[in-house]
Design a protein around this nucleic acid. Structure first.
Lengths: 342, 342
DNA sequence: TTGTACGCGTTATCAA
DNA sequence: TTGATAACGCGTACAA
């Protein structure tokens, strides 16, 4: 660990000169000195001390990724392919831009914000931050923030949102189900976040357009905790006896549900049709294929990170970016129109 | 951003006293002062500046996770469920121990090591570092290192390895295949790392024990690059015409292969039996279930991180920890003994 | 019980 | 073209 100071002493130069060479501020340094310094840098394998640099510049080159509630929902954050792909996308961009990524997952927003300011994080990507928490975040953190699926409304200076056509996506999926003759359709989710409620809205609209009444009991709530999921699934499978189709709020849940259904002796789609959301690898790699609503998850992460870095560069960015969805028809929805006519 | 200095001035105290209160060195501070300081800390929302702290203490509270070659193999690191689960396990422990995780994925080991020392990382978890690179790493980085699947041999002070019974696992799987009457068995992998060669060894032993000759052409090499994988899969599917079973080096590859086989009009296991390795969510969530070799991936990450933190605490740890494997029999291997007798 | 003063490695300002 | 020197915020001997 050679320091600039040591190097300077060895070369009989000042730290300033060495520092200047390191940073290419070479206009005011003689060619000979540059040469000498560069050689020494190589020879002694100089690496800058980021802590000192950051301290001096009041920067960090760190981009924080804050995920409220996620640590509690999934003990292993990355087991959910959605999270994994999203973070993968972010990480790629962050790394290629010369920044570093630091992950904060906690249910306690205060905790997250404390660490974010402790590390002097240059910018923040927030995932799963609710409307009511947004003020608190802004108050304690003045640098650029990009929200993912934040459903920002109103003015939020220095804060942009990367969203999705959640409502339309769900609408298309459920419309497809009703077109195939389904009238008893359940909605499977785990909570009632902004994303879920947007998708529920689309679900309800599609039902309405088909002249079907939505009842509260159609909302099936999966408890994703590892020690409770099995029981929860069993309960849901039972309740699904009264339905011919389920719209699931994620592929993970769709695939998990299908496994439970199959284990309970039911066939998909012969006995019940299932439709997912995300079109992640779980959907893509299974055969028969999962009918689902496609979204570009990795791209979402990439765009979030790129947007943040653009902001960090002082350039302007749109207040909101909404990515599209597309229904991908594969093999888990059955056409039951013939049945009902019979 | 209040600093200790400012706080001290406001309270008419010295920075030392404030600092002492912050760190609970309360034996030599009057109760009244403690009270006052703590109240001020709350009120002004004091957060320490990590850069300054690290600079002063020459520490970082950062644990680096270095993955050589991974950035090039998978453009999105976390798309591979094995990586995702492993990192998830590490991250959980790291976070709960008050450390932070920083990810380095690059094909260039020098690049990785440079950043590791730049950030003054307290400890390193290395994944996919080859024998020949180990010296280089040790030379440039003197702090504790935990390797995952490193296949360390010989003396490596301050360096421990978390491994797996790869050879036995593969042996069990292939033994199972031969027991079921298979004699034309292929080996699917993407490279020839230590892990793969251990599994290949087990593969070969099992063949040998069943009196089957191993030929080089039985080694099917999958090219996992996104733009080449399709072609590679097609080629492999063709070559599999001459086999009744494949042993795949990962569940990801097994599931990917099955999808390709199904798309090519083949049935698993009726036409060809497939066996995987890892028993990750891909295997667990599919129906019919994937027969595979179970390993506790998340636990591997957890143990790696725990071991490193133990080392960081100055306690002693075993030089090597080998986790076990277990064959999980599900539904992708067919018993063809009846066929051959017929 | 509290305060002073210095060092950590780097950058930045200003003077030479 | 180069060099002194003062920050940056914190921790810690050592002094009071």
């Amino acid at each position: 660990m050679v320091t600039i100071k040591e190097l300077a002493k060895r070369l009989n130069l000042s730290t300033t000169t060495v520092s200047n060479v390191i940073h290419g501020k070479t206009k005011e340094v003689s060619a000979a000195t540059i040469e000498r310094v560069q050689k020494a840098l190589e020879e002694y394998e100089y690496v800058p001390n980021i802590n000192a640099r950051n301290l001096a510049q009041n920067k960090s080159k760190i981009i924080g990724v804050a995920m409220k509630g996620r640590a509690d929902k999934t003990p292993n954050l990355f087991k959910d392919p959605f999270i994994a792909e999203l973070i993968g996308g972010i990480e790629k961009v962050v790394r290629n831009s010369g920044y570093f990524m630091m992950l904060y997952a906690s249910d306690d927003l205060g905790e997250i914000m404390k660490e974010v300011s402790t590390w002097n994080v240059d910018g923040l990507i927030a995932f799963g931050i609710r409307e009511e928490d947004r003020e608190k975040v802004r108050e304690r953190y003045k640098k650029p923030i990009v929200c993912i699926d934040g459903y920002l409304c109103g003015e939020h200076p220095g804060m942009v949102d990367i969203g999705l056509t959640d409502e339309e996506g769900a609408y298309d999926a459920v419309k497809y189900l009703t077109n195939k003759g389904h009238r008893k359709i359940a909605f499977l989710s785990d909570s009632v976040g902004s994303v879920d409620s947007a998708r529920l809205k689309g679900f309800q609209s599609a039902l309405q357009d088909a002249g079907i009444d939505y009842r509260d009991e159609d909302f099936l709530r999966l408890n994703p905790w590892e020690d409770q999921i099995e029981e929860s699934l069993k309960d849901i499978c039972d309740r699904l006896d009264r339905y011919t189709a389920v719209f699931c709020v994620s592929d993970l849940y769709a695939v998990t549900l299908i496994a439970a259904l199959v284990d309970a002796g039911k066939r998909v789609p012969e006995d019940i049709s299932v439709i997912g959301f995300d079109d992640n690898m779980l959907a893509k790699l299974r055969r028969p294929g999962l009918t689902t609503v496609h979204q570009e998850i990795e791209k979402k992460g990439v765009i979030a990170a790129e947007t943040l870095i653009t902001m960090l560069n002082g350039e302007s960015v749109p207040e909101q970016i909404i990515l599209g969805t597309e229904l991908v028809i594969r093999d888990t929805v059955r056409d039951i129109r013939a049945d009902s006519e019979a």
